[in-house]
């Protein structure tokens, strides 16, 4: 048994989600939105089944190499997008967020990433693998939503001047970004830093080693601390806030990908 067919099916469904989302811009808005949302739920169910199959087949957590981790990240992003759609109404941000999912899924299903199941090295055999990685990636999924919303904010900036309708939409992007950071930041803190420190202390005997991955997650965390301080205390909003949220997520991406491929360290197994 193999999870890959399920993954491809969910990938195709996600493409349809995105297309129907964009279709709603051109007419039959309510109808297309409903189709898009229903497809999203279906895709999420299929991808969840894929994760379950992978977990059963491999016998370990479904995020121990790049292929598994990006797949789990995209699953988390889908979950977060659905939650946001239900709670806050994403409006025009919806199909653009699915663009991100489609990009992630394209990477997951590409032959660039080896898909074979490899047994776990001793350091990864711990329930902290589940806690540390899943909470971190879930937090990063929220930060990814903030990233897309911030880009949309900046992109909308050119057209919204003097148009109160467009301005309202643009402010909605800013609010989505803030709400996503408000959820993603505590989760990232808990998963990446706190759980990471606890696990490091048990596995390596020290909770902090200034390993490049550790330093880069601290850098990511500091960027979002900057985002919150400038926003809540100095009253920055809009453009400058959006820029910090974008740079913060780029730091998170570098922590995830860049550190593995460019810098060597203790986290070199993923």
């Amino acid at each position: 048994m193999n999870e890959f067919p399920l993954l491809l099916i969910s990938f195709i469904i996600y493409i349809l989600v995105m297309l129907s989302g964009f279709a709603s811009f051109f007419g039959f808005k309510a109808k297309w939105s409903r189709i898009s949302y229903t497809l999203a739920i279906a895709g999420f169910v299929v991808q969840s089944a894929g994760l379950l199959v992978r977990t059963i087949v491999s016998g370990h957590a479904p995020f121990t190499n790049m292929y598994e981790s990006i797949n789990f990240l995209s699953w988390s992003c889908v979950l977060v997008i659905i939650i946001f759609q239900r709670k806050f109404r994403l409006e025009k941000a919806w199909p653009y967020l699915w663009l991100l999912i489609v990009a992630l899924m394209a990477l997951v299903s590409s032959p660039l990433l080896p898909k074979n199941v490899t047994p776990l090295v001793p350091a990864l055999q711990s329930y902290w693998l589940w806690l540390h990685v899943s909470v971190t990636l879930l937090g990063e999924a929220f930060l990814a939503v903030a990233f897309v919303a911030s880009i949309l904010y900046l992109a909308a900036g050119r057209s919204s001047a003097g148009n109160s309708e467009a301005q309202k939409k643009q402010e909605n992007y800013d609010l989505i970004a803030y709400r996503a950071v408000a959820a993603g930041f505590p989760l990232f803190t808990l998963g990446a830093l706190v759980f990471g420190m606890i696990w490091a202390s048990r596995a390596w005997g020290r909770y902090w080693s200034w390993d490049p991955k550790e330093v880069w997650s601290l850098i990511t965390w500091l960027f979002y601390a900057l985002y919150l301080h400038t926003r809540l205390v100095m009253g920055w909003k809009g453009k400058r806030s959006a820029l910090i949220a974008i740079i913060g997520f780029l730091a998170a991406l570098f922590t995830f990908f860049g550190v593995n491929y460019l810098l060597s360290g203790l986290h070199s197994y993923v």
Partner: peptide
């Protein structure tokens, strides 16, 4: 002051990045 906070946060970010670029 918050200005100092922002300055220090930025400085810590900068130094941390340098620390991952120069072999330690």
């Amino acid at each position: 002051s918050l200005k100092l906070t922002i300055f220090l946060l930025s400085l810590i970010i900068l130094l941390s990045v340098i620390g991952t670029l120069i072999p330690q």
